[in-house]
Design a protein around this nucleic acid. Sequence first.
RNA 1: GGGCCGUUAGCUCAGUUGGCAGAGCACCUGCCUUUUAAGCAGGGUGUCGCGCGUUCGAGUCGCGCACGGCUCACCA
Length: 526
Amino acid sequence: MPNYRSWPFAEADKLIRRAQDLDPAKPVRFQTGFGPSGLPHIGTFAEVARTTWVRHAFETLAQRPTQLIAFSDDMDGLRKVPLNVPNREMLAEHIGKPLCHIPDPFGCCASYSAHMNAKLIEFLNTYGFDFTFQSSQEAYARGDFNEGLSILLAKAEQVRALIVPTLSEENQEDWFPFFPICENCGRVYTTRVTEYHPEDNTLEYACDGEVHGVMGCGHQARTSIFNGKVKVGWKVDWALRWYTYDIAYEMYGKDLIESARLSSRIIGVMGKRPPIGMVYEMFLDQEGRKISKSVGKGLTVDAWTTYAPIESLLYYLMQSPTKAKRLYWEIVPKCVDDYLGELRRYPALDPEQAPDSPAWHIYNRGQGVPAYGAGIDYTTVNNLLSALATDSADLVIEYLERYDPKAAGYPEIIRDLVDKALNYYRDFILPTKTYRKPAEEERRWLLDLRDRVIEYDGQSEDELQAIPFDIARENDVPAADFFRLFYEVVLGQDRGPRFGAFTMLVGKDKVADLIAQRCQEEPSGS
RNA sequence: GGGCCGUUAGCUCAGUUGGCAGAGCACCUGCCUUUUAAGCAGGGUGUCGCGCGUUCGAGUCGCGCACGGCUCACCA
């Protein structure tokens, strides 16, 4: 078997050993988890993308079927109201209740978590990930966890012995792995287990706690632990999912290292082994701070894919997942160019080397890696765009194909680059353009330029290029100053393309119109 | 205090199994008799954070240390 070095294969190797004693008839399960209290963000995207790459590497090496479960913790209670959602006063009334039992603050779905789950599914589908969505609430209600819950209740003291030492002193005494949902007020964070009965899988609770200023209702009852009447606490929940679905692989951020360690010991108590785990680093913003889920700091997936090809984002996520990386716009162009470099290199790789190329992973195990032999890169397109000061993709592409005839051979990639660069130009460059008003003398020179361009009836770029030089010489103006005048007044910037080539491609009439338009505006602004 | 990551050119960072230290940007010089050029050609004396070790050979491997950052030490 070939010895691939890229990290998804290294992970797959570990998983192969882990999966040896699993039922070969069943798919090997991968999991990613989400907290539906907020909207999906780049961390979510990264986790699914990276897990998918390990999954594909594993399938390639092991030739076994796999499944990726995207698990949503929608039974978790609402602890505090997020800052970035509407109807916050309504939500405040529901603090302490499971997210799946709280109305949708956006008003369109059956519940708060249903809204977030729908967003998550939509988000992942947009990028074509293959996954099986699983709601925690549905899994509890359906009884998926009943067997595991029964074991946990029987071994509650052992679980307590693992968790309690990690808690603050005031929480140690009352802590119990199970969190009953109060059948009276519906809250899960205000209940306290008072007795438990492993022999019939029930427990007794009192709803007399407090969460963020909200008091329990005082209700007391005895309830079954099955079918969603009771959930288990966080680290126990994680172990329960691993146990129930035989999860063989799950990656997580470094902030969950300690949690994963505890969950691993809990599943050990339950009698199974934890999945292979991989720790990835957090994403940081430009100042090196962790990107928050609730605040829109740093670059979003949406922003990246609006202004650059999505493959460049995947390429970025492929690079060293265990290294903290700052995420801000300035890194994107380099990523795009590096990604294009991978495409250029790919066809020449030996079949044995190809699976270690980022392109192989990004394009579904090397299926459909597009050819790219042009020299055009994203930086080129951006520079050209700012020189041309145009919003016409066709014009830009014409220029590119003149510059590098090979570009015509890869129309899809070129078109995507231009479209994305144009989006960036429109949103960030164009609004900052300032068109200088010409002085009276300058205005005459420019109108002279316009007239001579209209009169010229040849097809020579060089002859067109000679016109501004003639005008500059005749009026005793340095050529460089005259060109800058043209750019500042007509294009709203201090640099630009060669006049001759620009005029030929844009069209004489269009250039003449632009000049006339800018020169007509009176200095007084009347 | 536990854990994780980092420290390589002015800046941002590559450096794959140990084998002559790299890229982009920035900056400088020159060129096309015709731009302040999406242009071309040149331009790098780097304590690879420090020390010790392994090795014929270490940016790379091992141990120790320093500095910076993040994360957990509430809760899920």
